[in-house]
Design a binder for these strands. Structure first.
Lengths: 386, 386
DNA sequence: CTGTTAGCGCTTTCAT
DNA sequence: ATGAAAGCGCTAACAG
């Protein structure tokens, strides 16, 4: 798109969508002296007033009377550089007073590394994504990487390879792919670019980082089993979501090994989805006594349907959520949940992606800790046989 | 940080935090022929196999036998370029078959525009941020910009100027600042860099985009007034949050103009906060009959406290949330809310920032639409005078 | 101990 | 109708 076209479009747009309120025009800023070093951590006052262009390597070279390469070496702490103590100090000084910031663009162009990742997330609404996001953002920040978040539009979920262009255009060094669907048909397009699947297993193996869903289901089954429950239902998202798939398998396995019955119900991961599926079960009669619910959105629907039908929790059925959220403690009946290591998952994904970008041959990562049951009021002893 | 140091750190880290499961090693990808043009929209098959470096302008120039500058002009659709139809087609062809992608880094370096924004968001948990985020991401994507999200750590909220470095290092063209606090002490550091305050008024004026909080409060007050309520309380976040400040002012004004009483209660924007403040009111006796609650997290606490105290909703008190979320429809008593134009706010913020980056002298933007009351069951006629 | 040189991939003015 | 050349800000191999 040409700049001109873009300018026009944004202008209309603002006019269409919003009402505008005119306030006083901009006043120019005032000046002041020194500043600090480099990187995200810098604080304090600014270097110089106005919209003066940023200081470059050559500016500080000129100021000190040395060559830019010398400045570069000093600022990058080149180990095999020997330099007169005095020049070194003058360089550092000039950098500081000019408020020098390395131009990340130029660096990236030269080093062939952008220092950024793209994080593709299916839909931002579920709170699990925000915790995951936070873990990833934080670790990336610690390591000096930037993360750009891309939201996958729910409807027409693009194949992961659709994000390859971000790397090809040198906007990112690699891709964090949290697209939920387990399209096991190998997507060749994404292969050519460093990437890691987050919270789902990828088709390629060796580059996915996932949580211990089986362990989570185990926690749930153990908990209700210890209270005498013998029949379990797992209400979860669509079967082609990888985490769902793994929880389902685990539920079957855990229940079988204890001789418990395990029903599985798939529904959209929304309030509506949870509501509908529960209504249907209610209508069909004979409810399992222990419900595991895959997403918090579904949980609201499940709870509403149970309430609506006059099925007391935990009197008649016990309920456990696989998404933990603080609000669960404040519901009509506080809901027991399994707290998953989401932030750790995000951090581990960043670490894994960095290894990949650096060319390491990596193995899949399984994040198990910290994971624990958060006992609240929604689980009770199994009701006597009906 | 040196690459070596970084590598080591990430390696430990992965080992510490996670358990690792080895899976089969990587298999090499297979090749295939043609591809498409440029930009985020590209689909289809990939250009060439393996990890071949991306095609550059010069590659296609060589292939066609012209100069890179010609190729550049063609690909950028330079209007004042005249070229033989045939060469043009050969260039386009070569670009396509090579799967050419412009290197965003080099472009940015040359044009002095990165095509990216940084969006600073206070804390990702509240669902309002995700809707806002989505609006911004989407508009930015439409306009060919990338957005990187930075989360503001709650505790030590940095001044907005702390993010200036992102622009100074040429990582972004401008800043979208959704930091909630209305530190009206002018932050000079941020001034030097294109920025827009989102969902809060900035100290400088002319560069903030906000929603019509007063209108939202008006919707609430009108609604309960029409049902006979005469006493209102607004339970909201800390007073130094800008949106809170505006809602408070509006509540006072609206109630005064109708001769209604307006109480204001500030509390942390958490479930706990809502719970505590409501408990305190309950203990003090004589409740207002209409509650407006500033955040959904607080809402859970408020509802819990009311339930706990045996104060029926809407029998004794009516409740309205200023955060809309689908889950509200599925609560024990479905909660009436005011739906705010959050996605539109995000989009408008992006538009405003683009104008700023392009040097326009902008006015503050007030996003009013679409905003509406979502009537559910938590509001009823005022209880008779006690 | 420090300067020179050669680019990274792209845009753009100025010459043909 | 197209090419040459300069240069964005930085790094790194190679000279002195």
């Amino acid at each position: 798109m040409s700049p001109a076209k873009r300018r026009m479009r944004t202008a209309d747009r603002a006019a269409q969508v919003t009402s505008t309120e005119v306030t006083e025009p901009e006043t120019p800023p005032a000046g002041a002296p020194p500043a600090k070093l480099t990187g995200p951590a810098a604080t304090g006052t600014r270097p110089a007033a106005g919209s003066r262009r940023a200081s470059r390597l050559v500016d500080i070279a000129d100021a000190v009377g040395v060559h830019v390469s010398t400045v570069s070496r000093v600022l990058n702490g080149d180990p095999r550089l020997s330099i007169r103590q005095e020049t070194l100090e003058r360089i550092l000084d000039a950098a500081r007073t000019q408020g020098y910031r390395p131009n990340a663009l130029a660096q990236a162009l030269k080093r062939d590394r952008t220092g950024a990742f793209a994080f593709v997330i299916p839909l931002l609404r579920n709170p699990i994504w925000v915790r995951l996001q936070r873990g990833a953002l934080q670790r990336a920040a610690e390591l000096g990487y930037a993360v750009m978040i891309m939201e996958e539009p729910t409807e027409a979920a693009k194949p992961p390879g659709a994000y390859r262009y971000l790397v090809e255009e040198s906007r990112a060094d690699g891709l964090l792919l949290a697209t939920a669907l387990r399209t096991n048909k190998d997507d060749p397009a994404v292969r050519e670019v460093p990437h890691v699947y987050v919270n789902r297993r990828g088709p390629e193996r060796g580059n996915d980082v996932v949580m211990d869903e089986a362990g989570a289901v185990g926690l749930f089954v153990d908990h209700v089993a210890s209270l005498g429950h013998r029949s379990v239902v797992l209400i979860d998202g669509p079967r082609d979501v990888d985490t769902v798939h793994r929880r389902v398998a685990a539920a079957r396995r855990h229940c079988a090994s204890r001789g418990m019955s395990a029903a599985i119900r798939h529904a959209p991961a929304t309030e509506e989805g949870g509501w509908d599926v529960t209504r249907r079960m209610l209508r069909a009669g004979k409810l399992p006594t222990a419900f595991g619910v895959g997403s918090i959105n579904q949980l609201f629907g499940v709870l509403a349907a149970l309430r609506d039908a006059g099925a007391p929790v935990p009197g008649e059925v016990s309920v456990v959520s696989f998404d933990e959220d603080e609000c669960l403690a404040f519901l009509e009946v506080p809901v027991t949940s399994v707290s998953m290591p989401l932030a750790e998952l995000g951090a581990a994904a960043v670490d894994a992606l960095i290894s990949r970008v650096e060319g390491a041959r990596t193995a899949g990562v399984l994040v198990r800790e910290p994971m624990f049951l958060v006992p609240r009021a929604s689980v009770g002893p199994a009701a006597g046989p009906r």
